[in-house]
């Protein structure tokens, strides 16, 4: 083999490797994306069931309920137009609080109940997740109640 052919082979090998890696990466990406939905989209049936998605909004004041002594907790997440009840079993993050913006990751069990496997709150007080911000910015629906 001439040096030139060898180098060509090397380049072809690397290209092959890179494209293979890209293929794997894009496949992994497709399978592991989770889409964000706001409570209105959930209420209008736009969010799929049985798939991992994220739902975010503000935790409604006074909605956090837990059976005494149980890890099971339920709370409402709202975008001030519609509300989704989130059910979660486990330790909530430190910054979880009523009136705080949160994002829950999990699956939709029914139109109004979301079973979360993870609840995220940010460690910055002034924080509101950008998705939540954006969904809050949409115009209010007709006849929305306060």
């Amino acid at each position: 083999m001439t040096p030139r052919r060898k180098r060509l082979m090397l380049v072809v090998g690397i290209l092959l490797g890179v494209s293979l890696a890209t293929l794997f990466a894009t496949r992994a990406l497709r399978e592991n994306l989770s889409y964000f939905y706001d409570p209105t989209q959930v209420a209008q049936g736009e969010a799929p069931r049985g798939r991992s998605i994220r739902v975010g909004g503000m935790v409604t004041k006074g909605s956090v309920k837990r059976e005494s002594g149980s890890l099971e907790v339920k709370f409402d997440v709202t975008d001030f137009r519609h509300t989704v009840t989130v059910s979660y079993r486990g330790v909530l993050p430190d910054l979880f609080r009523e009136g705080q913006g949160i994002i829950a990751h999990g699956q939709l069990a029914s139109d109004r109940v979301f079973v979360a496997d993870e609840v995220l709150a940010k460690h910055d007080e002034k924080y509101m997740p950008p998705e939540v911000k954006q969904s809050l910015k949409k115009p209010m629906n007709e006849g929305a109640t306060p």
Binding site: L20, A21, F24, A25, A28, L29, E31, N32, L33, S34, Y35, F36, R54, H105, E131, Q134
Partner: peptide
């Protein structure tokens, strides 16, 4: 759409190289 890419993606894709 608004998506997030979670650890499962990296855990698979990062191992390939």
């Amino acid at each position: 759409g608004k998506i997030s890419v979670g650890p499962p993606f990296y855990n698979v894709a990062f191992l390939v190289p």
